[in-house]
Amino acid sequence: MARLRFPLIVAVALFLTGLALTAALKDRHYMLLSLLLLGAALLPVFLRLERRKLESRELVLLAVLSAIAAVSRIPFAALPSVKPVSALVILSAYVFGAEAGFIIGAVAALVSNIYFGQGPWTPWQMFAWGMAGLSAGWLRNSWWMKKRGGMLLFGFLWGFLFGWIMNIWYIISLPEAFSWGLVMTAYASSFYFDLAHALSNVFFLAILAGGWTGVLQRFRRKYGLLQD
């Protein structure tokens, strides 16, 4: 785990500093740059996946969890912001760890967008859900994440974080107008959506937590899958 955490932190830090740097330099092409940086943030985990020797069962397990997360998005398509994906990704990461969580989140975003339409938002969603999984995996051994309330709070926070990450790609199309006012406007306009997402996360986590972690942990035990 420790080997993985370092390059990832570097990548994420790189991404954030990159964004900040370009904003400071008043370069005009944030959109391209942000895509490049997103790629840089997604790269390390996938690179590790490529390098790592994965048992076929582990690969199928990742595919199944990603596909279930993607499928779970379909019945709720009519309700904006109600996406069980976040909850499923967080729970999968809670059981199988940060790396698996990131991959499941990112692949679920990519695959579900085959049905919802790919767009400039795809890499951002991959990043946001991937990060939700990654952070849940990192924190899974902390005392408060093991508590029910802690996990629910975590889900609540990610509801907002997800929305905020998704707002970035919108905001960077207005580099000249960048100001705290604009950020506030963008975030305020998405507030209710984010709140709905956060609350649905809490709800899904609350009813899923016991049952799903049970099922996943049974599989992990039974077949010794994805042990760190």
Partner: peptide
């Protein structure tokens, strides 16, 4: 209704994971 929806997903999860092991075998 939401709880039921999640129960359905759980049935799907258990079943699919179980079958996924066969998929893994077939790959191997």
């Amino acid at each position: 209704r939401m709880r039921d929806g999640m129960t359905l997903l759980k049935v799907l999860l258990t079943w699919s994971l179980e079958e996924a092991l066969q998929t893994g075998d077939s790959m191997k």
